[in-house]
Simulated scan of single mutants.
Amino acid sequence: MDIAQSLPAGTPFGGELERRPRLLVVDDQPVNVQLLYRVFAADHQVFAATEGNKALEIARQQQPDLILLDVVMPELDGFEVCQRLKADQLTRDIPVIFLTANADPESEAHGLDVGAVDFIGKPFNTKVVRARVKTHVTLKRQGDLLRRWVFLDGLTGIANRRHFDERLAVEWARIQRSGAPLSVLLIDVDHFKRFNDSHGHQSGDDCLRRVAAALASGLQRPTDLVARYGGEEFVCLLPDTDGYGAQHMAEQLRQRVHQETQPGVSGAPWPAVTVSIGVGSARLDLMHSADDLLREADLNLYRAKKAGRNAVRAGAAALSA
């Protein structure tokens, strides 16, 4: 069966093991997709696209470690795709290797000018392609590690407020162009001051780390982000998620935190904790900035606390509350 035609664009080849590098192959010829799949499927998670716009969509959603990109394609050619990848904050750090039959010096120079890290001519030697992919994936992961240190919360190991603020600004600008849904969850650990007073600040720090781990493990997509918002508050950014989906995710996270902090699961010498969650969902007809989105989530968080905590609250009425 034709692999490139039998699976929908963006379908991961080879499973969901996140420890494996994620590779996006973009080529309008299915035979080339099949060949590269056979080369990389054993030790990579491979995604495929046969045209430029779909490649941009998959790159944003799946955040691959590297993109193998054909130059000559209908509609958007590889050079234009690469330029758009580099103009988008979510995809600009993904290395791009061009694969093309036009391996002349002028094309190669242009490919490097628009942001590619390498240029391989067709027909290609599979050993050479594997070696170059390995090199650039290693460099990408080293760069990712350095960037994470800058945007990391020192206590919990998840993203910090600075990283969340930057991602929120990017996503808000994107939905203004596309009209896509966007939601945020504001999450507060219930009665945390009482917890610290009863169990001590070291246990409080351990509690925050366990809550952060439960939230991070509960997110479902690479583009979802959980960050420490400040003190005992956390925030989740959910691109391409409407109010219904965000409320469903919030309820799952509320239950997950309570389950994952049970003494029998966590081994902690203190009782399980609960969280209250407020949901905010973008409505461009009423909201003028990302601050309005956060305000809705904050007002819904207040409603969750007022309702007795260990609860999720959502709804557009919060803006006028």
Results as ranks from 00 to 15, higher is better:
D28N: 15
T274Q: 11
V279R: 02
A317E: 11
L219V: 10
T274L: 06
E296T: 00
R309I: 09
P21F: 07
A116I: 06
A212G: 13
Q220K: 13
S289V: 04
R92C: 13
L7D: 02
A173P: 00
P105R: 06
G121V: 02
G14E: 10
A314I: 00
M249H: 00
V96T: 05
G200C: 05
L68P: 06
M249S: 04
D188L: 05
A173W: 02
A116T: 04
D285Q: 13
G10N: 06
R209K: 15
A48S: 14
D291A: 13
Y37S: 07
R228V: 15
A297N: 01
Q259P: 00
R174D: 00
H258I: 00
V189A: 15
A87S: 15
I3R: 10
T138Y: 07
Q247H: 05
L237S: 12
L319M: 15
V39G: 10
G204S: 10
Q220H: 12
E108T: 00
E260H: 10
P123S: 08
Q202D: 11
G245R: 03
G143Q: 14
L69N: 02
Q252T: 08
A304V: 00
G245L: 09
R194T: 08
L17Q: 14
A173H: 09
D153F: 06
G154T: 14
I277K: 04
D285S: 14
